[in-house]
Design a protein around this nucleic acid. Structure first.
Lengths: 194, 194
DNA sequence: CCGTCAAGACCGAACGTTCTCCCCTGGCGG
DNA sequence: CCGCCAGGGGAGAACGTTCGGTCTTGACGG
């Protein structure tokens, strides 16, 4: 476990910092927590934080980048789990509801972040936009493979449903939200394969 | 214009304060703006703010209450504009897309606020929840009047679509979002009246 | 020797909040 | 008519705390 070979540029303190920041930013928001909290709970000093990140914004960017990687992996796993395009869409939808049902779910990290950074020129806002663009393209491509012509409208429909499910998933019964979402996805699929 | 009779308990400074707070909180978020900004742009002094509100949180609550009143009025107008239940749902949906299309749209004031106040015990969080409960009940009642049995699932579906449309409306082309949303609403209606 | 980290002092600025002082206006009693 | 005063509002200083960020010192280990 202490094997830090292979490149070796990975700092253990940096990892603790990023994990702590991820947990706190996700559950409590960004503007409302100061670097003191993160530094304290990560058991590092301020100097260590600023040695690894250029500032708080950079830490937030790293947090979102980590979340982005996680979701991309999750989608890739879901797509790899099925053969047919419709089932791949269903698998992606199921992975979303799995997140909504999981304890500690606090909504979409990206939607939450963009609510705190409305300025479109801000790097954090742009990071959110980039993630959303990737996700829209990914599900649109997936839907296109189900046949039934251009999937742009269906892709937007699916993303809209996902955004609503993610936003409400921590404000309402997660089971009902998940059921409603999956039902809506089946509707989108049915409209294309019918 | 200076006629301030009739009760006269309405303070002109308070109104300026609340309007300014509404504009700034909605467009820039809550935690990221200080009372100094609001006080300055409302052309009042800090003392005046604290004479009318018990603190910043109270001002935020008043902002959300104002937004709540606005939306309730908007829904009431939409419902009154049509005779049949399906057309009333369409009218409500159109009023939502009108908001999304309007310049300066920054998403749902309540979803944005709750992203900054994840703590369920916080009064601001609870204020958002109360608004959302009212909205869900309202659209569920409306859908129930279209016939087709219990409308709980349809109501949740509609709210989910609305949440997604409001969340993405300021992150993507508002016209495409509006079209996608209205198309989804027609789908919900079609499933009930078919 | 050099990079990493702990520990903590320190900075200027902004935070939410409270304070005092004074002006202005309107109502009321003498 | 006049004097008084209560109260809303403006102006601004100041409160103590926290913010994000920098700096120093010294211990440890490759």
């Amino acid at each position: 476990m202490s094997r830090s070979t292979e490149g070796g540029s990975i700092s253990e303190a940096r990892e603790r910092l990023l994990n702590t920041a991820t947990r706190i930013f996700y559950t409590e928001g960004i503007h409302s927590v100061g670097v003191d909290r993160i530094v304290e709970e990560a058991k590092v000093t301020r100097a260590t934080l600023y040695r690894h990140f250029s500032g708080k914004d950079d830490l937030v960017l790293a947090y979102l980048s980590l979340a982005d990687q996680g979701i991309r992996g999750q989608v890739a796993t879901a797509v790899a789990s099925s053969e047919s395009a419709p089932d791949q869409v269903r698998a992606v939808a199921k992975s979303i509801t799995a997140g909504i049902r999981s304890p500690g779910f606090r909504g979409c990290a990206f939607l939450n972040a963009v609510a705190e950074y409305p300025d479109a020129s801000h790097p954090i806002h742009q990071s959110v936009m980039a993630h959303r663009e990737w996700f829209l393209n990914t599900v649109t491509d997936l839907l296109a493979q189900t046949g039934g012509g251009p999937a742009d409208a269906a892709g937007r429909h699916l993303v809209m449903l996902r955004d609503g499910a993610m936003a409400a998933g921590c404000l309402f019964d997660p089971e009902l939200i998940s059921d409603t979402f999956l039902h809506g996805v089946e509707g989108i699929l049915h409209a294309r394969t019918a």
